[in-house]
Design a protein around this nucleic acid. Sequence first.
DNA 1: TGATGTGAACTTTTTCACAGCT
DNA 2: AGCTGTGAAAAAGTTCACATCA
Lengths: 241, 241
Amino acid sequence: MTVHEHGRYSTGVEDLPYRSVPEAAVGRLAVYLRVLTSMIEQGVTTMSSEVLAGAAGVNSATLRKDLSYVGSYGTRGVGYDTARLVEHIERLLGLTRHHSIAVVGIGNLGHALANYPGFPDRGFPVTALFDVDEDLIGVPVGGLPVDHVDSIPAICAEREVTIGVICTPVPAAQGVCDLLVAGGVRCILNFAPVVLQVPDDVEVRRVDLAVELQILSFHQVRRGNGIGPVVEPIDPIAVSR
Amino acid sequence: MTVHEHGRYSTGVEDLPYRSVPEAAVGRLAVYLRVLTSMIEQGVTTMSSEVLAGAAGVNSATLRKDLSYVGSYGTRGVGYDTARLVEHIERLLGLTRHHSIAVVGIGNLGHALANYPGFPDRGFPVTALFDVDEDLIGVPVGGLPVDHVDSIPAICAEREVTIGVICTPVPAAQGVCDLLVAGGVRCILNFAPVVLQVPDDVEVRRVDLAVELQILSFHQVRRGNGIGPVVEPIDPIAVSR
DNA sequence: TGATGTGAACTTTTTCACAGCT
DNA sequence: AGCTGTGAAAAAGTTCACATCA
């Protein structure tokens, strides 16, 4: 709906600098990036699609197609230059721009995320913490003092927060979300098990831990693993009406 | 991959307990379940596909198709009986059988998950905690004492743990995973950003928080939102070869 | 020779649209 | 009249297989 023209892709070609990337490929590219980074640390300078695909847990054809959305940085008969690939995946994922995270809801989970080393390690520094609990306000968590949720719009705008992480209880989540949006935050990672209503230009990703367990439960039963009887078939007579 | 088709699509009438459920539908069914449960608490006894789909954030045709995998429990012209639907989704997801969780790695995140109310609330009691840190062994976390990771196989077997949650640092994750598998655990929720190697009959789901942020980052850049310059276009000369 | 890059085939998932029931 | 249930169409995603090139 809303198209912001802060900058455009002025390649001379009317299209994007990268061809459009399928949604499914984006998540995998982030995984390749991690594998590559770790390989580079071990001194690996070249990798074949077969090896990288194995390490990332995907089919090698899928990997090659995914990388083709980034560009052609492989050498036939040799493989990919790891450093070069990292550089281009990072650019594609927008990791070359400044990011800054706010965590809202400093309970057990929020506390853990405020201290999660994977965020700053991956270029996402946590720069603001919020809660409603007066006893928490001003208390430093991971070196950063907690502010009141009422100050979300002002502080997020001031600190140029780009991603909001919601770890509040369900009833508070939508309100907090609205405050983040008011503060200019356009990306939200939501741990509250509720579907948030947001404007079209805001992207929400939900991480629902109970849902993950339920999916695992389904597969276990389907497979007939574990203790106890496998699912009893539904009585066809009870089903029909 | 094991194919477990109980029957074939021949005459239009099948003898399956449930027809085979697409992977994508399973996750959504878990979401519908939560919405329904919350609606029932508010006294709602009937819902239309349109309303339920709205609350779950999906298209109503998708919802109806998903529910058709569970069976036909709607009434035309009226909608779905919420209680009945909950009952059948729970059965399909295997939530009627006993589940029991072990959390391995009692750092910040493990601590938070050991206390996460959403697990027991959703029928997944945490019944074992493990770590390597001698200072933690025996210390109760959320009322449950921490055991040493070496005792994972024995304790998991004894307590009939069905799901293992891995919150260890990356280097420890694969070893812990092997111990869980040795203890008879066939479902693993992995928070360590590494691809685990497991036997074919073990199901792993990975939750990678940094990947979630990177996906959000991608969308923000694509949209041209936020502060700062949009991605610099790649030099077309460098792209072509 | 050996590995990439990709069109084509295939599979899965989503959406449409409407027949059929209540 | 209104809403479900589902075939059929469309879209998205995955895998194959091989031409291509270092």
